[in-house]
Write a protein that binds this DNA or RNA. Structure first.
Lengths: 210, 210
DNA sequence: CTTGACTGGTAATGGTCATTACCGTACATG
DNA sequence: CATGTACGGTAATGACCATTACCAGTCAAG
């Protein structure tokens, strides 16, 4: 029915990972059956067991892959030479789009659920994803502070505030399946508003403190 | 072993709900077995089936109970007569403490996971919890705007920004089991910083816009 | 004491699932 | 053409689980 033979294994592996990710993200770890994955990927269960060992190994491969591919930080080059407002806007839009994308929503859901079952994986997800992103933003804010664009403060904490505004109720609603991912216009609106509040919030005061 | 007889049923019902909530929140819906619940609650499976019908009914009862008891909004009286800074501080601390509390973390986890399986329940959770809280804050901001304390803007969206800052990476880390709930001091620090940024962010400008 | 509503304990039923085992086939190289 | 390797399909094995059934004790009213 499907292609009868493929390259040694890399593309089959990818097909398995893609199909498995879909099912895991939809149903959760426990409710996902190997049969359901095979139904989507084609082939036979032996593929999964010879490539990933068992269900847990397959799951781990998915989490690792999606953690760093989808949640990677913005490249330094992307914000090179931009002022703080533009940097935050680019950063915020990118972040919101990533957080709302189906694979990241899927990973996010399953990380929250399986925190007890797979603590190591969840730690890796956080550090490579949200943690790294926030640190990256903190560096940007640190530079801005050094230039005098914003007033002194704990850059790490300020970065968390900004990231929190990006991952607000809109994100929660998407994660809960209560509404679809926002359009590009909605993203621009929400991020614009957040940038505005944040910039004013951290700006150097017009009047010196008493 | 346990008490041999109790009042008609109310306290037994509560005991079942409490034990079931623990297991559901730890293991997730699918992985929770009725036997595991009975092991914690004592008694026999017949109790559960005669009181809640089936596993789904028990789960629904838990979600409903915890959605409105734990995530209820702040009473209007609690912020009566306070200025905006104090109001936001009280509001923010209360919100963060609630969001970090074990039952709400549990409900949050399971809502995220079971969004596909129980859409109605999840909708009710959101509306009674985060949704209502945010609307309540939006009303507060609307009043402040009318008094000229803050500049014009979409109050609903501003409220989302604030709530987002309260539910930032700290919350995510707790939900993911990567760190324990923050101490009261940590809550005060984080909320204080968020209030500061937010207040400056939405303040009426010292210089009129050009 | 008798009866009945309720409860605990335990087993039966029917279903699902992870994991492994088998069987036959297609392909690639010799 | 011969043969080994990897594959698809399907079934076997052993475990777990929701739900129901069955049995026996306990309490309270008559």
């Amino acid at each position: 029915m499907a292609a009868t033979r493929m390259e040694p294994n890399e593309s089959r592996r990818q097909a398995l990972l893609r199909a498995a990710a879909e099912v895991f993200f939809e149903q959760g770890y426990v409710a996902t059956s190997i049969d359901a994955i095979i139904e989507r990927a084609g082939g036979s269960k032996r593929n999964i067991y010879s490539e990933f060992g068992n269900k847990e190994g397959l799951f781990a491969a998915i989490v690792r892959e999606n953690s760093d591919s989808a949640l990677s930080t913005l490249d330094a080059g992307d914000v090179e030479g931009l002022d703080l407002r533009a940097t935050l806007t680019v950063f915020g839009r990118h972040l919101m789009e990533v957080y709302m994308s189906p694979p990241v929503v899927g990973i996010y859901r399953i990380a929250v659920t399986e925190a007890n079952r797979f603590p190591e994986l969840v730690k890796a997800f956080y550090e490579q994803g949200p943690g790294r992103t926030t640190s990256r933003l903190a560096e940007v804010l640190e530079l801005a502070r050094a230039r005098g664009d914003i007033r002194a403060g704990n850059s790490e904490r300020l970065a968390e505030h900004f990231v929190g505004m990006i991952r607000d109720n809109l994100h929660l609603q998407v994660v809960l399946g209560l509404r679809p991912a926002p359009s590009q216009e909605e993203v621009h609106e929400a991020v614009g508003s957040a940038v505005e509040v944040f910039l004013n919030g951290v700006a150097t005061p017009l009047t010196p403190p008493d």
